[in-house]
């Protein structure tokens, strides 16, 4: 990769740079333009989010009147109370949490374990297993055959349909394998001399050393699991007890979108009857669920920023 180039010392050039930097109108104009552009970008990115927060804290019957932009007009926490008082959404929240946690742990553990075995150049089955996994990045059997597989495995309407089909990702495996390749051979060798078996080396040496790359990939896997709704939609939609937060949100979305002109029509969707007071409308409930569904991720990702590029490094994807 080109970005492995080490930047040379810049000190000699620095003085030259300062004296030769073009002065005049152009830089000022450019930087004003750039600043304005960045402010617009930030506004366009954040406004819908702030607006959703405002709506989620605004009384539902007041939101219908319109004119909520950055700040709630009739402040209330009723929308959030309604979500957590509602059995369906409360359950869906915990199903989402459970699938995210279990998926992430299993996926990271199994993918890293596989990556370790395939990073061992002396492993007898290294070649065939690598090829079989890499090929899965190229094709997919498609929706219908996969549906039949899940049906034949008796996973329709089961919690495990959220976990099993996504336990290993070939792409992540290659990223992790490349990272394991950077671990000094001597470290593994010394563990071997101390009498550790391969599994022990994996658990005690490789896993701890892979923490930075695993943190990033865990974030990607967790976000994927938390955000997915399609599996709930096609595999478990007949079982309300297995519904996820995103799927509940999707049902609310379609009900509010189709009744855009009169949000009252769909009142009661996703809520228990007793909590469906006049103050709470599908629109405001949707805003509150949107916030609940996005806050967990938004709290975590800024801290992982410096590792993001690891997971995206195309150069590392090579056989």
């Amino acid at each position: 990769m080109a970005n492995q180039q080490i930047s040379r010392g810049t000190t000699p050039g620095l003085s030259v740079k300062k004296s030769l930097r073009p002065s005049g109108l152009e830089p000022v104009l450019f930087h004003s333009f750039n600043t304005v552009f960045m402010i617009c970008l930030v506004l366009v990115t954040l406004y819908p989010f702030i607006n959703t927060i405002a709506v989620s804290f605004n009384a539902g019957n007041d939101t219908i009147r319109g004119g909520i932009y950055l700040w709630p007009r009739v402040w209330t926490t009723q929308n959030y109370k309604a979500i957590f008082a509602s059995g369906t959404i409360y359950d869906a929240f915990w199903i989402s949490v459970a699938r995210t946690v279990i998926s992430t742990i299993l996926n990271i553990f199994l993918t890293t374990m596989l990556a370790y075995t395939l990073s061992r150049k002396d492993y007898v089955f290294r070649k065939p297993i690598t090829i079989i996994f890499v090929l899965t990045m190229y094709f997919s059997a498609g929706l219908i055959p996969n549906y039949f597989l899940i049906k034949d495995l008796n996973l329709l309407g089961s919690f495990w349909v959220y976990i099993f089909p996504t336990m290993i990702s070939a792409f992540n495996m290659i990223v992790i394998r490349t990272y394991i390749g950077t671990i000094p051979e001597s470290l593994l060798e010394s563990a071997r001399i101390d009498g550790a078996g391969d599994f022990k080396i994996f658990m005690r040496v490789v896993l701890p050393l892979c923490k930075p790359v695993l943190a990033t990939i865990a974030l990607f896997v967790a976000v994927g699991a938390w955000n997915s709704w399609f599996d709930a939609f096609i595999y478990t939609s007949s079982k309300q007890s297995l519904s996820t937060l995103q799927y509940e949100l999707m049902k609310l979305l379609s009900s509010t979108m189709n009744s855009n002109s009169n949000p009252n029509v769909a009142a009661g969707v996703g809520m228990d009857r007793d909590s469906a007071k006049a103050m709470v409308t599908p629109l405001s409930i949707r805003a509150a669920i949107t916030i609940v569904a996005s806050v967990p991720i938004l709290v975590v990702y800024p801290f992982m920023q410096k590792y993001f590029v690891v997971g995206l490094n195309v150069g590392s994807v090579k056989e």
Binding site: V42, T45, L46, P48, N227, W229, Q246, L249, S294, I297
Partner: peptide, 18 residues
């Protein structure tokens, strides 16, 4: 940069809602 990454982490459900 941090702000510009934000929408990437939202699900399409949320984004289409927005």
């Amino acid at each position: 940069q941090t702000i510009s990454y934000l929408p990437h982490f939202l699900s399409w459900i949320i984004v289409t809602g927005i």
